[in-house]
Amino acid sequence: MANPLALYTHYVSISLRSQMQYRVSFILGTMGQLLGTAVEFIGILALFDRFGSLSQWSLAEVAFFYGLVNVAFAVTDMLSRGFDHVGDLVRTGEFDRMLLRPRSTVLQLIGQEFTLKRFGRFFQGGGVLLWSTLYLDIAWSPAVVALTAVTVICGACFFLGLFINIGTLSFWTTETLELMNVLTYGGIEASKYPLAIYRTWFRRFFTMVIPMGCVTYFPILAILGRPDPLGTSLAFQYTAPFFGLLYFVLSLFIWRLGLRHYRSTGS
């Protein structure tokens, strides 16, 4: 009798084995991922070479933002490709097959693909993160270590919530992937710099509507031990990641609404 976790492990092992059948494609894919995120970082390096600093932020600090966000996102990216494909699955009828099985659709979609090549982003982000800590003077107290772990986990959950949103939207329109890219990849793009450099409307959007800042900017300030130019308290910075978790729960709820719509329209 398989509980959801055992079933998920089974899915992952199967997914890995099918990917290993296309080894060349896997290697190229991983390198492509690595390169894709690396060029962004090269851009950052080039800009720091020209401008010296970004407002009051140093290259090492920006690198820490960049690295942590990419690590959290890469974890989700590995798990949640299935939600990206909901539109295709609906078109081909595969999604109906999932509904024919006595399991939750969310579990089946997460299990659909464990995208190993996303390790490219993970390694690249992790590398930049480690490199940045060499130049930063972070006081690694137990609280800061715990906060770092919580930030990565809640960040991954938050991004998973975004991917679930992408899947949910596919019940209404066929090609929605790109729209949500504003939030996923656009959010990553934005989060590689401290939220403080952006305009007010933008900061508000990524704090209050889509709480991306809560799993990146605010806790990272506490980790770096920097006061917030925006004036938030340390207590808020420590609790902020949980808003990401909340967003994830909300996304699951909206998914259920989308599923209900799909099952009444069949489109």
């Binding site: 800009l47 401008f51 407002s55 952006y198």
Partner: peptide, 13 residues
Amino acid sequence: IRVMAMEAFYRST
């Protein structure tokens, strides 16, 4: 996003 980031860089120097 890109424009705002560039603005911030140009503010720095």
